[in-house]
Simulated assay, not measured.
Amino acid sequence: MVRRMITFLAAVSLLLVLSPPAQAAAQAETYVALGDSAAAGPLVPNPVLPDLGCLRSDRNYPRLTAQAIGAATFRDVTCSGADTTDMYQRQNTELGSVPPQLDALSQDTTLVTVHIGGNDVGLTGFIEDCLNLLPPPIGDACNDDYVENGQDTWRVKTDALRPRLTQLVADIRARAPQARIFMVGYATYAPPNGCYPRVPIIRADANYIRATLMYFNRMLAEQAAGAGVGFIDLQTPSVGHDPCTSPGTRWIEPYIPAAPAAPFHPNALGMRNFATVVTAAVTGALAKS
C-alpha cells in the first residue's frame, strides 16, 4: 500500500512538472489589442497616456483582460475613431496623430484581439441619425433613408467590408505568426421595439438598428470563421444591458449618458463584463490548443 502511494505521488509530481497550470501558460502571453472606440472606452475614467486623442481608458476590456490572464507583455493601441485603414496608416486625432495599429505587432506576439469595422460603415453616426425627439407623424423614421434602388445601403457597406477584414487577418498573421487571433463583435444597442421616449428612437427605427447590427455581427463571425480565427460575441451577453435599461444595469450608455462614457458606447460596468467574456474566450481557446 505504501509503495503504491509513493508511486502515485511520484507520478503526480512528474505530471505537474511536465504540464504547467493554465495560469502559468497564460502569463507568457504577449497580448496586443487592436480596435476602435468600442474597445478603447472613450470617457471611461481614466484616460491613458500617451495618445490622449485616442480616448483610451485604463479600464477598458483589453486592459482588464490582460490583467486577468496575467499577460507578460501588453500593448493597447485601440483608438477612438479608428477604421480598417488606421490599421495600416497613421490616424489623426484631435490631439495629434498615432502610429498604424499593426505596428504594435511583432514576431513574439501570441494573442491579438481586433475590434474594428464599425467606423468603416458609420455605426455611431447611423444610430445618432435615428434619434427622433418627436414621434411620427411629426418626426420622420430614419430607416427609409438607408434604402436606395431597393437596396439597404447599410448592408451593402457591411458586405463591402468582408474582403478588407479577410486581408486584415492575413496581415496580422504575417506580422505575428505565433498569435492566436480573435475578432470581437459589437454589443446590443437596441432591444426589440426600443424604449421611446427614454431613448428617443422610434420603434421601427429601433428594430432596424437591431436588425442591421445583428447582420453586421453575423458578417464579422462569418469572416472570422472563414479566416480561421476566433470570434467573440458581445451581442448575446449584453442582451438586457442595452441603453434602454437603467443605470447600474446597462453596459452601453444612451445618447445622454448617466455614467462616464461616450454616447452609445460601453461604460465601466460594460467594460468589466466584456472583459469577463473576452477572458473566458481567450483562456478557453488556450486550454484547447
Score class of each variant (00 low, 15 high):
N207I: 03
P237C: 11
A261P: 13
A285M: 10
T113S: 15
A72G: 11
L123G: 05
A160I: 00
P99I: 00
N267E: 02
L55Q: 14
A82V: 03
L55R: 13
A206W: 01
Y255K: 08
L52M: 08
L131N: 11
D76N: 14
D205S: 10
G53W: 05
A258H: 05
K157F: 06
F182L: 03
E94T: 06
Q235C: 03
Y196S: 02
D171A: 11
A204R: 12
T166A: 14
A71C: 11
P200C: 04
R3A: 13
D152Q: 05
D108N: 10
A281C: 08
C244E: 09
L64C: 11
Q89C: 06
G118Q: 11
L52R: 04
D51F: 14
L111W: 06
C195Q: 06
A174N: 08
N132D: 15
A204I: 11
T124Q: 15
A40C: 14
A281K: 05
C195E: 10
V2Q: 15
N217T: 04
G228D: 04
L286I: 08
W251V: 05
A275C: 05
V32Y: 06
L16A: 15
R210S: 06
T283S: 14
A39P: 09
A227F: 02
P20T: 06
T30L: 07
M5K: 10
Y88F: 13
T153H: 13
D171C: 12
P192H: 04
W251R: 00
R164Q: 09
R3M: 11
A141I: 09
T78R: 07
T93M: 07
G226I: 02
G96M: 07
L43E: 08
L220D: 00
D83I: 00
A28T: 06
S19K: 04
I256F: 15
A281I: 02
S238I: 03
D58P: 07
D108T: 07
V184D: 09
A25L: 12
A224P: 10
S246P: 12
A174E: 04
P237Q: 05
A187D: 08
L165G: 06
D36S: 14
Y61A: 04
